[in-house]
C-alpha cells in the first residue's frame, strides 16, 4: 500500500465519519460545523485528483460562503426546535434499508464495468496548464462560453430572488 493510498484512506474515513455526524447529530449548529470538516475532506480529495483549482474553489465557495450562510440560518432560526426532540421523522428505518439497497445496487452495477479498477496515475501537466485550459475553454465561443454566461445569469437571478424573498415586507406597512 503506497503513501497516496494511506492518505486517501485517512481522508475518506474523516470525510465519511463527519458526513455521518452531519446527518445524525441533534444540535443543528454542530451538524453545520461537521459539514465544514466534510467539505474540507472533499477539498483534499480534489487535490489528490490533481484538480487543485477545484480544491481552492471548494474551500472558498463551500467553506467560505455556503457553510457560513448555513450557520447564519441555523442561528437565525435558533430555539425553535428543542434539542431534546427527535430530529428525524418516523421513516428512518425504511430510509436506512432503502439507502443500503441503493448502495449495494450501485456498487454491484459499477463493478461490472471493466474500467472500475483502473489505477489513477499522475497526469503529466506541467505547472498550471490545467487551469489555463479551463479558463480558455470557459471564454471560448467554440467551447463553453454559452453555459458559462448562462450560469452567471442563473447566479444573478438567484441573488435577486434571494434578496426579494427574504426581504421583510412589514417595514413598508409601518411607514
Amino acid at each position: 500500500m503506497s503513501v497516496q493510498q494511506l492518505i486517501f484512506l485517512s481522508l475518506a474515513i474523516v470525510t465519511i465519519f463527519s458526513a455521518i455526524m452531519v446527518v445524525s447529530l441533534r444540535n443543528l449548529l454542530h451538524s453545520a460545523l461537521w459539514l465544514v470538516l466534510t467539505l474540507l475532506g472533499v477539498a483534499s480529495l480534489f487535490a489528490l485528483l490533481e484538480a487543485s483549482f477545484f480544491a481552492a474553489v471548494q474551500i472558498l465557495v463551500y467553506i467560505g460562503a455556503i457553510a457560513i450562510l448555513l450557520i447564519f440560518a441555523v442561528m437565525l432560526t435558533h430555539n425553535i426546535m428543542s434539542v431534546s426532540d427527535s430530529q428525524t421523522n418516523r421513516g428512518w428505518g425504511i430510509a436506512i434499508v432503502l439507502v443500503s439497497i441503493i448502495l449495494i445496487a450501485l456498487i454491484s452495477q459499477l463493478s461490472t464495468w471493466e474500467g472500475f479498477n483502473t489505477a489513477l496515475i499522475g497526469l503529466n501537466s506541467p505547472g498550471q496548464e490545467t487551469v489555463l485550459l479551463l479558463g480558455k475553454g470557459l471564454v471560448d465561443p467554440q467551447g463553453y462560453a454559452l453555459p458559462f454566461e448562462t450560469a452567471s445569469v442563473l447566479l444573478l437571478a438567484a441573488l435577486l430572488g434571494g434578496v426579494y424573498i427574504a426581504f421583510d415586507k412589514r417595514i413598508d406597512k409601518k411607514t
Partner: peptide
C-alpha cells in the same frame, strides 16, 4: 496509485449519507 473504484465507492457512500 489510487484505483478509480475507491473514489466511486466513496462518492456513492457520501451521496447516500446525504440522501438519508
Amino acid at each position: 496509485m489510487i484505483p478509480l473504484s475507491w473514489y466511486l465507492i466513496l462518492a456513492a457512500v457520501l451521496f447516500l449519507i446525504g440522501l438519508y
